[in-house]
């Protein structure tokens, strides 16, 4: 796997509003709703924080759309479900995730698998790090879910801002050089200035499989001019996404949990 340095993103500094999508998990309805919402936010760049596929019924559509956006300058990092879907090996995953991976692997053609398998594990751009799980050991797919795990990730990078996903629960952490990392539960739609001589770690919620008891799709926008990050929620057609999961013969629980966001 490649690691891309600061030379990625030619013309950096032009990008003023950056949109983050994490954990789409092949949910076309959620992705389309967030994309339409994001377009109205004057987005200059898209960043995909991994797990494009797995669980949902539209892996082909999602991979095609993201690949297209990457042609236009979007940045995409690798998630554990992307690795698994590319190889067909779902070692370490639970039975529902494994079933979804087997189904997804079969649904994708070779170029799509290669696209997923060839994604970067992490990308650094200006003062920002983009990674699916966390910075300390990105290949181990550990979750950031509390102050300790956030601190481990923040200590492992020199970048001021880290953006990740993986756990499907929106969270924000901040840390100074001398104090432990602190947690903040973000309010959707309220911009947060990422001020000061401190590091910030934004854990994006999931576009396609929210698990914070709110079924709406989650994404986020960074405004580099104002130095502000906003967590956002977008309602979408859950019924349709669930219907397709049933139709595809994927495990029922993957559809049921969409309705309750768990």
């Amino acid at each position: 796997m490649r690691e891309t340095g600061q030379d990625v993103g030619i013309g950096v500094g032009l990008f003023m509003r950056i949109c983050f999508f994490s954990d789409i998990h092949a949910n076309r309805e959620a992705f389309d709703a967030c994309f339409a919402h994001a377009v109205r936010q004057n987005i200059d760049r898209f960043v995909f924080l991994g797990d494009l596929v797995g669980y949902g019924a539209d892996p082909v559509y999602i991979v095609d759309r993201v690949a297209e956006l990457r042609e236009d300058g979007a940045l995409v990092v690798l998630g554990n479900h992307d690795v698994a879907a590319a190889s067909g090996s779902s070692e370490g995953m639970n039975e529902y995730a494994s079933a979804a991976i087997a189904w997804t692997h079969a649904a994708l053609d070779k170029p799509s698998r290669e696209f997923l398998g060839g994604l970067d594990l992490k990308i650094e751009e200006e003062d920002r790090l983009y990674v699916h799980s966390e910075a300390a050991a990105p290949t181990q797919w550990r979750y950031v879910g509390d102050s300790d795990s956030a601190e481990r990730s923040l200590r492992a990078t020199r970048q001021r801002l880290t953006f990740c996903g993986h756990i499907h629960i929106p969270q924000l952490f901040h840390m100074t050089a001398t104090k432990p990392a602190k947690f903040f539960a973000p309010h959707a739609g309220a911009p947060i200035p990422l001020v000061g001589q401190r590091q910030w770690l934004a854990v994006l919620g999931s576009v396609g499989q929210p698990r914070d008891k709110n079924p709406s799709a989650a994404y986020g926008v960074l405004d580099t001019t104002k130095n502000e990050f906003t967590f956002l929620r977008v309602p979408y057609d859950v019924e349709e996404a669930a219907r397709k999961i049933h139709e595809a013969g994927l495990p029922q629980i993957l559809a049921a949990r969409l309705f309750i966001g768990r």
Binding site: H174, K182, H187, A190, I192, P193
Partner: peptide, 10 residues
Amino acid sequence: LEMPDLLEAE
């Protein structure tokens, strides 16, 4: 009330 309280943390 919708932003992290940096002082409380410190």
